[in-house]
Simulated scan of single mutants.
Amino acid sequence: MEDKLLVIAKNSSPNASPVQLSVVSCQLSVVSSQLSVVSCQLSVVSRGEAFGR
């Protein structure tokens, strides 16, 4: 997923249209939200293990 974003960022020229920029920023926000969900799940799992001991 991040590799695709890098390719998009490299392919977009300096004078990229606002639509292209908004699409890239939207994809970045989606990726960051996915990462936050994963980190939240990891913290829940680690808490569960702590309670299990």
Rank of each mutant, 00 (worst) to 15 (best):
Q34W: 08
F51C: 03
R47K: 08
A50P: 00
Q20A: 02
R53W: 02
M1G: 15
M1A: 15
N15V: 15
Q41R: 14
S32F: 11
L6Q: 05
L5S: 07
Q41D: 09
S29G: 08
I8D: 11
L21E: 04
V19N: 05
G52Y: 12
V30L: 08
V24T: 06
E49Q: 04
C40I: 07
Q20D: 08
S22Q: 09
Q27C: 06
Q20M: 01
C26G: 01
L35T: 12
S43C: 00
Q34I: 06
V37A: 12
S17D: 13
S36F: 04
M1L: 11
V23D: 02
I8G: 01
A50S: 07
E2Q: 08
V38T: 09
P14G: 03
E2V: 08
S32K: 07
G52A: 12
S33W: 08
V7S: 00
A16Y: 07
K4D: 05
L5P: 01
K4M: 02
Q20L: 01
Q27H: 06
I8K: 06
Q34E: 12
I8T: 03
V38P: 05
S43T: 06
V7N: 00
S25A: 15
Q27F: 13
S36L: 00
E2H: 05
V45N: 08
E2Y: 04
P14H: 04
D3Y: 03
E49C: 04
E49F: 15
Q27E: 10
N15S: 14
V19D: 06
G48W: 04
V37W: 09
L35Q: 12
Q34F: 14
N11Y: 03
R47I: 00
L21P: 00
V24K: 02
V45Y: 15
I8H: 04
L21H: 01
S29W: 04
E2I: 09
L42W: 15
D3T: 14
Q27W: 11
A50L: 02
S36D: 13
V38G: 03
S43Y: 08
V31D: 06
V44D: 09
A16F: 09
P18K: 06
N15Q: 13
G52N: 11
S39D: 14
V31A: 15
S36K: 12
V44L: 10
P18N: 05
S29F: 04
G48M: 02
K10S: 15
L6I: 09
S29K: 07
S12R: 04
V44T: 09
S43K: 14
C40A: 15
S46K: 10
V37H: 10
V44I: 11
L21S: 01
S39Q: 13
Q27P: 00
Q27R: 07
L28E: 07
Q27S: 05
N11H: 07
N15Y: 03
D3H: 02
F51G: 02
C40P: 03
S25C: 12
N15F: 11
N11C: 07
P14M: 13
S36P: 03
L21K: 06
C40E: 13
S32D: 11
S17T: 10
R53D: 02
E49I: 12
K10L: 15
E49H: 11
Q41W: 09
S17R: 08
S39H: 13
S13Q: 05
S33H: 15
C26K: 09
S13P: 10
G48S: 09
G48N: 08
M1W: 10
S33R: 08
S25M: 13
F51Q: 00
V30H: 11
S32W: 02
V37R: 13
S29V: 11
V31G: 12
